[in-house]
Design a protein around this nucleic acid. Structure first.
Length: 445
RNA sequence: GGUGACGUGGCGGAGUGGUUACGCAACGGUCUGCAAAACCGUGUACCCCGGUUCAAUUCCGGGCGUCACCUCCA
């Protein structure tokens, strides 16, 4: 069996992957906070970990992998948005929260499905696990890792001797570098919230500490525990989540689990820039998945994402998408539908080497057409028989008629007419290709 | 200020202590009414300065640059 190696953020090294239970490989990835359209940066972990999900299913069997990607529908950014909606439409804030999260979550799922991602095994929403969050918080208080202060429950980082081990920061350094105003009720600036009180205008749930809402970090710990158990195999997310989110997850989960680790392997994808600049709303280069899908097939976006190794910084460009489009056009033209195409060994080895998708793609360029079909299938390009053109708004019948007319003109040596037809199609973005088997066409970018 | 990542040919992008990455673009050829496509072939590289080594793009140290985290963020 192909040996899977993964770069573990905990050890900063590539390690051989050995699941706790090969009959149930368990992976958790931090999902979106649903208050607005997901942007292309959000798509990176979705696509990268979807490829890992597919690879694990290939290696261990489709029924032996459990993948959890949560939906955070309790969050203060959501609450802020819900408050605006509630005020403008004069509706209850909880109703507004439910509406915006339901709508945004569905939009997210539609977007990532268009990117060729499989549905995770479970897509838990925080609101369905508040009881588990309360229970875990209570456990942390009982174990002496958390304290109640001024209506809040806080995790006391000083109680966790190895706090900072994931991000590799010492508590002293972090406190010295703290740049935020410290809430007066905190024992230490680094203590973080497990539970906080809600006023009448803020969504809240009953708890032993009054009506309130969970802190962000406890959401993932509680959902991970509920669906995957105390210790699971892989936890993934963007590199920006290493600190504080994942560090805090580690701290609270281990504290609640008598020291048992949360995840064996931590994977983090690198950041993405747009046309050489960081993506931000102020620069006006904040691009959503939804906007891109209006101009580009999801497969092209997916392929473009996989051309860069997941841990590398990535520059998202139109030039890159054009190149991706071109490559897929070429490949879709040569691959034929096969019921069970073979997966090339060099391709698989590259993929198993810490998800080296650029190397894997290079192997597809080198390999046979059958291996190309198999590789594309494993990477999530399952509809290799479906041309990209089929996803665009072109009239295939009209094009076929035009091609027939052009070929008739060519046969009659009326080249002025045949070239006119060709130029007319080109003006519509349809590029003709004369081959020994006849004339084919593709949509030109 | 602290921590971390990255810097490869025109562009994208793997990888390696000594042997062709790969793709796109470019150039040459075959084919074609022409062009495109397809196919064949060709070229250019490892940020700077030291060190280790028989040999460094690859290891070590320093510098410069870019990005990220330290505060919500994939």
């Amino acid at each position: 069996m192909t040996k899977l190696r993964l770069h573990n953020t905990l050890t900063r090294a590539k390690e051989d992957f050995a699941p706790l239970d090969a009959s149930n490989v368990r992976m958790y990835v931090c999902g979106p906070t649903v208050y607005d359209y997901a942007h292309i940066g959000n798509a990176r972990p979705v696509i990268v970990f979807d490829v890992l999900f597919r690879l694990l299913r290939h290696l261990y069997g489709p029924g032996h992998v459990t993948y959890v990607r949560n939906i955070t529908d309790i969050d203060d950014k959501i609450n802020a948005r819900a408050a605006e909606i509630a005020a403008s439409r004069n509706i209850d804030v909880e109703a507004a929260r439910a509406e915006i999260t339901a709508k945004t979550a569905q939009q997210f799922l539609d977007d990532v499905t268009a990117l060729g991602s499989l549905n995770p095994t479970h897509t838990p929403r925080a609101t369905d696990y508040v009881a588990q969050m309360v229970e875990m918080t209570r456990r942390l208080i009982a174990e002496g890792f958390a304290y109640e202060a001024d209506g809040h429950v806080l995790f006391e980082v000083a109680r966790k001797a190895d706090y900072g081990k994931l991000a590799r920061r010492s508590l002293d350094d972090m406190i010295a570098g703290a740049r935020v105003d410290v809430a007066p009720y905190k024992k230490s600036p680094m203590d973080f919230v497990l539970w906080k009180p809600s006023d009448d205008k803020t969504p809240g749930w009953p708890s032993p500490w009054g009506r309130g809402r969970p802190g962000w970090h406890i959401e993932c710990s509680a959902m991970g525990e509920a669906l995957l158990g105390e210790t699971f195999d892989i936890h993934g997310g963007g590199i920006d989540l290493v600190f504080p989110h994942h560090e805090n997850e580690v701290a609270q989960s281990e504290a609640a689990h008598r020291g048992h680790p949360l995840a064996r392997v931590w994977l983090h994808n690198g950041f993405l820039q747009v046309e050489g600049e960081k993506m931000s709303k102020s620069l006006g280069n904040f691009i959503t998945i939804n906007e891109l899908l209006k101009d580009w097939p999801g497969e092209v976006l997916r392929f473009n994402m996989l051309r860069t190794h997941y841990r590398q910084p990535m520059d998202w460009t139109v030039a890159g998408m054009n190149e991706s489009w071109k490559t897929l056009e070429k490949w879709y033209a040569v691959t034929e539908p096969l019921s069970d195409p073979p997966v090339g060994s060099a391709f698989l080895a590259a993929l198993a080497d810490d998800l080296n998708t650029p190397q894997a793609i290079a192997e597809l360029h080198k390999g046979s057409d059958h291996e190309l079909a198999g590789g594309l299938g494993l990477l999530g390009f399952s509809n290799v028989q479906e041309r990209i053109a089929a996803r665009t708004n072109v009239d295939a019948t009209a094009i076929a008629d035009a091609i027939a007319a052009r070929n008739a003109a060519r046969k009659a040596k009326n080249f002025a007419e045949s070239d006119r037809i060709r130029d007319e199609l080109l003006a519509q973005g349809i590029l003709l290709k004369d081959g020994p088997e006849g004339t084919t066409w593709e949509v030109k970018r």
